[in-house]
Design a protein around this nucleic acid. Sequence first.
DNA 1: CTACAAAATTTGCATATGCAAACGTTAGGC
DNA 2: GCCTAACGTTTGCATATGCAAATTTTGTAG
Lengths: 147, 147
Amino acid sequence: MAVSPAGKPQGCTHYKLRQLVREVSHYYDTEIGKAGLKGTQYALMGHVRKLGPVRLSDLAREMRLDASTLTRNLKPLTEAGWLRVEVGADGRSRLVTITEAGLAKYSEAQRYWKRAQERINQLFGAEQVIVLHELIDELLARLPQRS
Amino acid sequence: MAVSPAGKPQGCTHYKLRQLVREVSHYYDTEIGKAGLKGTQYALMGHVRKLGPVRLSDLAREMRLDASTLTRNLKPLTEAGWLRVEVGADGRSRLVTITEAGLAKYSEAQRYWKRAQERINQLFGAEQVIVLHELIDELLARLPQRS
DNA sequence: CTACAAAATTTGCATATGCAAACGTTAGGC
DNA sequence: GCCTAACGTTTGCATATGCAAATTTTGTAG
């Protein structure tokens, strides 16, 4: 087991994180891909499912994503009929909702997501995954909202 | 301080990691951008600098990147004259080297990188950053090489 | 009621990423 | 020496991501 000596962090946090996320993405994308979704699309649908009819900008803030990224990521999902985007009460805003077909697709993908998560738990050890999650939550909480 | 109860990990490792990496990237890209580089370009140049004339496929394995990604990421850097790609002894392979101009640009960017890293250390706490780095190294070590 | 500022989204541009297929080169078998 | 299999890189295709500028719609000051 590694110890944590007092001192300065070595190496680059940015690079290390990117390396890990690329590897981890692979497992999720491989599994969730069996349902015809990308990992990020699954996450997006999950958020829309939970947040119900939600304004684009609110969804962006919630997911810590740029609004323009969201606009584009929604496109293939609306075209597939899994999400719906409608004009809100305020004519400027758009409300995103998950459709019946979207719910079905999400449920299907959820089974594969579970397998990916279990594979990660197995590779990393459930204990370590818990530590990682808690650490990330803590770190994210320390970041100011940029929007 | 959060405790780590025995039990199953909650939430999605993939999504949490992506969220964090997006936020962290922001700080590095903002700083390193002042030198005219993206964070990923800085990391790439740093690897080429360290690994000297290196074959594309070896560099890809080292960085855990797909070779095709590397090919493309090299393009703007070679066009800027910071990296050079030449045919290797084996006519199939390509050797990547950093140029004089590249070394200068890297040194310049390094000052900004340092500021970004210090900002992250300050936001997260140096202790936590050390914990994060060690955790990532440990998790990466548990992943099989996919190439 | 009109002109202008503010808010919400979308578009244009650039990079990042991976997979599968194409391409060029090399090494072996015969 | 030639054909083929293997190797290393590049291309085509698709998504992911953010910033800055353009667009659309509101709201408000006069």
